[in-house]
Design a protein around this nucleic acid. Structure first.
Lengths: 116, 116
DNA sequence: ATATCATGACGTATATTTACGACATAGTCA
DNA sequence: TGACTATGTCGTAAATATACGTCATGATAT
């Protein structure tokens, strides 16, 4: 395009958007929930529990890894994928303050001109 | 594709992903922040405060409106866009429980086989 | 009525995402 | 060593998202 005007926004806005994008696909949400439910996970097993091919799951894992939301360490033949709990806590903070600002920001009241 | 296997996932996962997708672009994050900072907003004004054309901003507004995160009511010549505070609170709840589940889920410990 | 201004709808070009199959690589075990 | 298994890489096709210019519509005010 004429594409990706991302750079023109605040660092905060970009960061929030980046993480939101990581959660913007049900497969990635499912992967995180799966990792949270088990102590340790292996890429192949994850593919087995999702309605997607191994390749596609791997791609989703890469995206999550690119943001460092999950980590994978080679353990012999298999790989142990783990959640980055510290980062997830930070991200949760970001979302919380974003939502708090959004919901506590004064809503349209009867004193305004508009009708909502 | 061979596209959109979205249907194969949980309703919860889909819902979270849908909302996350809405926040997955800095422009939309900026729009919500802008609406939160003012009582009332008008589409034209929003475009004026973002580094995007009016058309593009309108498109982002439509996406947010499709999820009912914001609402727009015609007020004569202009339109009053407002945040849907109730829905935002619900969404915040969803995110919070998702993150809580993810961060309290047992992380890899030394008792596991893996090295993380 | 009609010029004007604010919004909304349409069409289009390009970038990115999603999804796979097929091949490459690297560790295990007989 | 050599078959086997588990992961990672590459290439590709189709769907979506992003961005914008241009035209249509509908209310206001002259």
């Amino acid at each position: 395009m004429t594409y990706a005007k991302t750079a023109a926004f605040t660092a905060d806005q970009q960061q929030l958007a980046r993480v939101a994008k990581a959660l913007a696909h049900p497969a990635r949400v499912a992967i995180i929930q799966l990792l949270a439910s088990k102590h340790t996970c292996i890429s192949g097993d994850i593919a087995a529990e999702l309605p997607l091919s191994r390749t596609t799951v791997f791609q989703h894992l890469q995206e999550l890894k690119a943001l460092d939301l999950i980590r994978g360490e080679i353990d012999g033949l298999t790989v142990c994928y783990c959640l980055n709990t510290e980062l997830l806590l930070q991200v949760q903070q970001q979302f919380t303050s974003f939502f708090t600002a959004a919901t506590t920001g004064a809503a349209c009241g009867p004193d305004d001109g508009c009708a909502c």
